[in-house]
């Protein structure tokens, strides 16, 4: 069954973004370096005898992922700015929604790559068992990430041409990242401690609701950020 045109165009945009990213490589490497540094900072700044790693792990995980996502979000529209190609996208017979979806998909894949590398590192450094809980953990991370990235992609379209763009984006984004961050952290804690799934389903539902609402809002509002 042929995909609706909007999705196909979105995929072309996303594929192009990812191809550029793979060639450039600087983005993913910096993000990875950042994650390692943050994990090291957390590790050396805590007193291992006072606080067991399992208690801190959810907070460390989510702070790291939140900040890594924020760094990653600048790249989507920065790419177009650097290549001066954005008008081309607007001129093409594709909907603005496709542009947003394409950027969203590319951002999600980019952040997911960081998470795929960062979460095992966290498990390694802090000696936290994650394999028995892998399914629900991946679900939690995925849901929270969609929330961050949906709003972040929308905002980065606006901040990319301002001065201090790299500073303004986190400032705008933080209030929007804190609720999903909280719910995800509250889900991760009991999850890693081996509590039953029923304990955390409520948080997952909140994350899903947040995602649905904000992806919808972003889809509706994105054209306003690019149309003159």
């Amino acid at each position: 069954m042929p995909l609706p045109e909007a999705v196909r165009h979105a995929w072309y945009v996303a594929r192009k973004d990812l191809r550029v990213e793979v060639r450039a490589r600087t983005g993913i490497l910096s993000a990875l370096a950042f994650v390692i540094l943050v994990l090291l900072a957390f590790n050396f700044s805590r007193d291992p005898t006072a606080v067991p790693a399992i208690d801190l792990a959810p907070s460390i995980l989510w702070v790291t992922l939140t900040f890594a996502s924020m760094l990653a979000l600048n790249r989507a529209f920065q790419l177009e700015l650097e290549n001066q190609a954005f008008d081309g996208l607007l001129l093409a017979p594709i909907s603005r929604t496709s542009i947003y979806l394409g950027k969203l998909i590319a951002n999600l894949i980019f952040v997911a790559t960081i998470e795929l590398l960062g979460v095992p590192l966290l498990a390694l450094f802090f000696n936290v068992r994650i394999l028995p809980f892998l399914g629900p953990l991946v679900a939690t991370i995925a849901l929270a990430t969609i929330g961050f990235v949906a709003v972040g992609t929308l905002f980065s379209a606006m901040t990319v041409r301002t001065r201090f763009a790299e500073l303004l984006l986190p400032v705008l984004l933080l209030p929007f990242m804190i609720p999903p961050l909280m719910w995800a952290a509250w889900a991760t804690g009991p999850l890693l401690a081996g509590r039953p799934l029923s304990d955390i389903v409520g948080w997952l539902k909140m994350l899903a609701a947040y995602d649905i609402v904000f992806v919808g809002v972003a889809l509706v509002l994105f054209p306003a950020t690019v149309n003159e």
């Binding site: 165009h9 072309y12 945009v13 192009k16 191809r19 550029v20 060639r23 450039a24 790419l79 650097e82 290549n83 001066q84 190609a85 008008d87 081309g88 996208l89 001129l91 093409a92 017979p93 594709i94």
Partner: peptide, 24 residues
């Protein structure tokens, strides 16, 4: 449209650029 900006992605090859824009 031909304007001041080349609308090309530096990291991609000529063919990849043309294929991308054509696909849209």
């Amino acid at each position: 449209w031909i304007g001041h900006q080349p609308q090309l992605y530096g990291q991609l090859t000529v063919t990849e650029n043309l294929r991308f824009w054509a696909s849209l």
